[in-house]
Every structure is written in C-alpha cells, then in structure tokens.
Amino acid sequence: MKSWVEVSERRLTENYRLLTGAAGDTAVLAVVKANAYGHGAAVCAPVLVRAGAEWLGVTEVTEGATVRAALETAGIARREQPGVLVMSGLLREDAEEVVRLGLVPVVWLREQMEWLAEAAGRLGMGPVAVHVEIDTGMARQGIRPGVELEDLLAWVRGEPGIRLDGVMTHFASSEVAGSLQTTLQRERFEEAIGAVGAAGLRLSWVHAGNSSTVDNQRGEGNLGWLRELAASVGARSMVRTGIALYGYCLPIEGEGLSEVRRELQPVMTWKTRVIGRREVEAGETVGYNGIFVAEHAMRLALLPVGYADGLRRELSASNAQAGGWAMVRGQRAPIVGRVSMNLTIVDVSGIAGVGLGDEVVVLGDGVTAEDHARLAGTIAYEIVCGVRAAHRCGIAG
C-alpha cells in the first residue's frame, strides 16, 4: 500500500463533543461533505452519529447515498439515522433519489421544489422536507429577502408536496470578530425569518454559520442571537460545523474570544513507507532542476507520495529556502529538492536506523495541515481535502 489515512475515532468524537458543549442549546450539524474533508465520509459519518449528531451535511445526492449506505453497513437502521442535508443544490435528475433516500435538500428556486414534488408524486411518497437558503450577502446560493422570498413562501404554503422544514443562511466572515458584514447578514436573515412567520409557515430548524461561528464568541455571541431568532418562529437553532470536527479552525481575527480552536485535535494521520535509501556526497544535486545541492554527505530516504497524492509542491526545498518535512521514527525529516508527482525525498541523516518499509507520517502529529497550509500559502481546508491516499481506515487512538 503506497499511502493510507488513519482516522482517529476518539479524536473525532471528542471534537464533536467539544463543539456541542460550546454550542450549548444550539444543535450542531456535522458536515461530512467533500468526503468528510478528505477524511472519508463512510468512515466518519457512523462515528459522528454514534457521538450524537442529529444532522449530517453532504455536498450532493451521490454523497448522501454513500452516507446512508455507510450508516446501514455500520448497523444504524434507517429509522435511527439522522437527517442528511444536501447542501449544494440539486438538478432535476437528482430529485427522485433525494425522495427515495429521504435526504433533505437545500433549495432556493421554485423549480427545484417542483421537481421534488413531482418525484414524490411518482413514488407515492409524502411531502418532501426542504431547507430554503437565504442569500444574505454571499451571492452564491440562496434567495434574497424581500418580494422574491415572499412569493416563494406563498407558493410553498399552497404546495402539498413540499414541507418547509428549515431556513438557513451562510456567513462570509464568521472568523472575523465584530464583522460588519456578519452584522448586515444577520439583519437580512432576521428579515427573512420574519417573512416566514408572517406567511404562517412553521419551521423545525433555523440555522446559520460554520465552525468559526461556534469558535467566535463575544458576550452573548453569535449563537445566542441565533437561538433567539429560531425561538421567534417556534424552531430550534442549529450551526453547521465542518473543519473543526477534523481538528482545525481558522484563527479568529480581531478581538474575538476563541472557545474551541486551541482544544481541537487533528483527526487525520496520513502515512506512507520508505521505499528507497541513498547516500549522496557534497556537491550532488537532488531532484528536479537541481534546486538542492548537498553541502555535505547526506543520507536520504525516498517516499512514494507527491503532488498527485495531495502533497503540495510548495513544500519543496532548495538550499536557499527550507520546505516541508515528514516524521520518520518520531523525528523531523526535511524535504530536500522538489516534491515530484509521486515521489518525495527527505533527509534522514540525523535519524538512526531508517530502513526500507519504515512507516512515515506525512500529515499528523508533528506535521499538521496548518504546517502544510502555511508553506503552501493556503488554508488547512485545502490541505486535508486534497489528500488522495489510497485507503482510509478508522483507528481507536
């Protein structure tokens, strides 16, 4: 096996419970979209359900089907499974599968709901539960508050094939304490929820935000505001957490009070094995373009992972600039030369006894996704989502 990912069930569970504790009376939707941020949705979803998740969030219908199947394989019967929110819209061809699997889609267009109602009619099933997204400032998904929303709500009220189960929005700057953009988005969301109440529609859920919404607490905080808004229409409040489940969260900008970030534990360990060893003398070049030249005798190890596997090329190292590293026998082994498509060279000169087949930690304790992100000029989200190891498995530790 060239490389593999181990997922710590214990850490995933503890992260989820840390988040639910910080959220208080607000429910926590556990996001497993993008294959659980690269960790494996089929592995993570059952763990999160056993930890108490009432909702899971997926990208699209196929991923929802994968999650439903994984839960059943794990012995969690359909009647015991949580709600599965399809977060990134749908097309006409998705509607029947949504209904058949009992998924709950995020919608914002009348056409989307017409497709669902038609599919429910063909299958002889009851009204389809949907969550309507409000565009409060992302200009991405969602319907804007005002006449457009009011017209849609009037149509929903008269459509027996659709049940409005929830209303949601997404904040663009949750990680910014005191963000004026978030304040404006809240005001627009309040307007939308007021319109729902005025239309005489009953909701089960009002939800907004992400991991940083839980982390960024100031006084009564984002979640106190959300709870009050949900209660105004007789609904429960919910926040959608993704990256924090897996051990990472964006730093809070400004004078925010971080509740969870410092206590999160990375869940993923990406491992590979040493497949080659080589001694080089001073003056020899290493890797493509000869950007690294040995300044003294060195002992190198070859790893069968590279940028095709998600190890970013920005972690390459030259004599002028250090790059990334892997953990070999519990010690840092610096990358030397360029990260190649499927191969990377590390310096093990100071690590005794390195042998063929030795396990190497590419990402995990001692070398985190935040380390990789800093060197690659990106965020931890992109690092973990980009891991393309051949196999994922759950472990107890």
Results as ranks from 00 to 15, higher is better:
Thr62Ser: 15
Glu93Tyr: 05
Pro304Ser: 08
Trp225Tyr: 15
Pro127Ser: 04
Glu370Gln: 12
Val336Gly: 09
Glu191Gly: 08
Val67Ser: 00
Val58Arg: 08
Trp325Leu: 12
Gly200Lys: 00
Gly221Ser: 05
Leu71Met: 09
Ser174Ile: 02
Gly83Ser: 02
Glu382His: 06
Ala74Val: 00
Arg144Gln: 07
Glu255Ser: 08
Gln265Leu: 12
Val86Leu: 13
Val104Lys: 10
Gly83Asp: 15
Ser232Met: 11
Ala70Met: 04
Leu250Arg: 11
Gly158His: 11
Gly21Ala: 15
Leu315Val: 10
Val214Leu: 04
Glu279Pro: 03
Asn222Pro: 09
Glu118Val: 07
Leu101Trp: 03
Tyr307Ile: 10
Arg68Ile: 09
Val98His: 01
Gly310Arg: 10
Ala369Arg: 00
Val99Met: 06
Glu96Asp: 02
Arg186Ser: 07
Val286Lys: 05
Leu302Asp: 14
Leu29His: 07
Trp115Pro: 04
Ala42His: 06
Ala154Phe: 06
Glu150Asn: 04
Val214Ala: 06
Met268Ala: 13
Lys33Met: 08
Met341Leu: 12
Arg392His: 12
Met87Glu: 11
Arg218Ser: 12
Lys2Asp: 02
Val367Ala: 04
Gly256Met: 14
Thr272Lys: 02
Arg227Met: 11
Thr368Tyr: 00
Ile252Leu: 10
Ala74Met: 03
Met298Val: 10
Leu91Ala: 14
Glu72Trp: 01
Leu303Ser: 03
Val5Lys: 09
Thr26Pro: 13
Val98Arg: 05
Arg236Gln: 14
Val5Cys: 14
Gly357Asp: 11
Arg144Cys: 09
Lys33Ile: 00
Gly21Arg: 15
Glu93Ser: 01
Glu114Tyr: 02
Val43Trp: 02
Glu263Asp: 14
Arg140Pro: 03
Val86Trp: 13
Leu245Val: 03
Gln217Thr: 14
Gly124Ile: 05
Lys271Ile: 02
Gly364Arg: 03
Lys271Arg: 13
Arg110Phe: 02
Ala301Asp: 08
Leu71Lys: 04
Glu96Ala: 15
Ala297Leu: 00
Ala322Glu: 10
Leu184Glu: 15
Tyr37Ala: 02
Met341Ser: 15
Ile291Cys: 09
Val107Phe: 12
Arg78Ala: 09
Ala51Lys: 07
Leu123Tyr: 08
Met113Val: 05
Gly194Ser: 04
Gly21His: 14
Thr272Ile: 04
Arg374Ala: 14
Arg79Ser: 11
Met168Ile: 10
Leu116Asn: 03
Pro145Gly: 04
Gly166Cys: 08
Gly306Cys: 06
Ala390Ser: 13
Gln141Asp: 13
Leu180Lys: 13
Leu109Met: 06
Ala294Arg: 02
Val305Pro: 10
Gly137Met: 13
Val362Gln: 00
Tyr16His: 09
Gly161Ala: 05
Asp25His: 13
Gln265Gly: 02
Val5Tyr: 03
Arg50Thr: 01
Val176Cys: 12
Arg11Met: 08
Ala117Tyr: 04
Met168Lys: 08
Leu250Tyr: 03
Ala41Asn: 05
Ser232Asp: 11
Gly166Lys: 10
Glu281Met: 02
Arg157Lys: 12
Ser232His: 08
